[in-house]
Design a protein around this nucleic acid. Structure first.
Length: 277
DNA sequence: AGTGTATCCTGCAGGC
DNA sequence: TGCCTGCAGGATACAC
């Protein structure tokens, strides 16, 4: 999916386009995207005005008047495309799942090829229950290296798996986990609790660097990801390891390797990230 | 607690 | 050209 930087890029693009608009109608073209029936979802959003657009972890939150919000998980291929009229090129929806029509005639489409995404309308209370399950936001200034170290020290899972667990740290996905581990010189199979305080400090910095650099680049486009105007992110050209198995490490020239861990690919440089065994 | 496996889907690349 | 397999920025449920 879109990970934290892609969700953040989408939010920044969406905010000026839709804040203040009032929803006239929600058309649900792919009901399996909702976690409730069309008949209950429609009335909850109809007539509501958008107050703000925010992000938590990898989720886009569209806050409405009446103490409720639309929570969107983009899944692997979800896109949010706002437009006054049907756009051309890559910004055009190909697999529209939910179409919001506003009273001023503009439209917001949630488009999702694989339909792993979800769209929900939650009350403040429902959202708070959900929100409490996410770990800290890595870019929160209050998130300290010691907090990362102490949390890692409690887990026996491989550090790459640990980083993908949204309850431990919010918003990190497979691309940025791979990049952050490379930058901090930690092998993806290292046991989380075996990470030293010095390594945890490097990892903490690497996570922040990778995520904020990726936000600056507008995210990473490998295949599907597009921002709110259908554009691609520029971080792909800065990747050190993700998707580069068999290619030369940009630091030492070794062949980048790929292993499967918890059914997901993990990429690393065997020299820059020494094996735990 | 943590891992492997399967599941939800569609599309694309590569091998034959 | 077609058919097959494997792979994909996510998340969750299950058995072990």
């Amino acid at each position: 999916m879109p990970e934290l930087p892609e969700a953040e890029t989408i939010v920044r693009g969406l905010r000026p386009a839709i804040v203040g608009l009032t929803i006239a109608q929600a058309e649900v073209l792919k009901p399996d995207i909702l976690r409730e029936s069309k008949r209950s979802f429609g009335p909850k959003v109809r007539g509501r005005t958008i107050e703000s657009v925010d992000r938590r972890a990898k989720n886009v939150l569209i806050r409405l008047d009446g103490e409720r919000r639309i929570a969107i998980n983009l899944g692997m291929t979800g896109k949010l495309l706002p437009f006054p009229r049907p756009p051309r090129g890559s910004g055009r929806p190909t697999h529209p799942a939910v179409r919001f029509r506003f009273t001023d005639g503009s439209i917001l489409v949630f488009d999702d090829t694989r339909r792993f995404g979800t769209v929900e309308c939650l009350s403040d209370e429902e959202w708070q229950v959900r929100e409490a399950r996410f770990g800290p936001e890595p870019l929160d200034p209050k998130y300290a290296p010691a907090a990362l170290y102490e949390a890692l020290a409690q887990s026996r899972s491989p550090v790459r798996s640990w980083l993908l667990d949204q309850r431990k740290i919010a918003g990190v996905g497979n691309i940025y986990a791979a990049e952050a581990l490379f930058l901090s010189g930690i092998h993806p199979l290292r046991e989380a609790r075996a990470v030293t305080p010095a390594e945890a400090t490097r990892l903490h910095q690497a996570i922040r660097d990778v995520l904020s650099d990726a936000i600056d680049e507008g995210g990473t486009t490998i295949r599907d990801y597009r921002n709110a105007i259908g554009g691609e992110g520029g971080y792909a050209r800065l990747l050190f390891v993700y998707g580069r198995d068999g290619e030369a490490c940009r630091r030492c020239g070794s062949d980048i390797e790929r292993v499967v861990l918890s059914n997901r690919s993990a990429f690393f440089c065997p020299l820059c990230q020494p094996s735990p065994a």
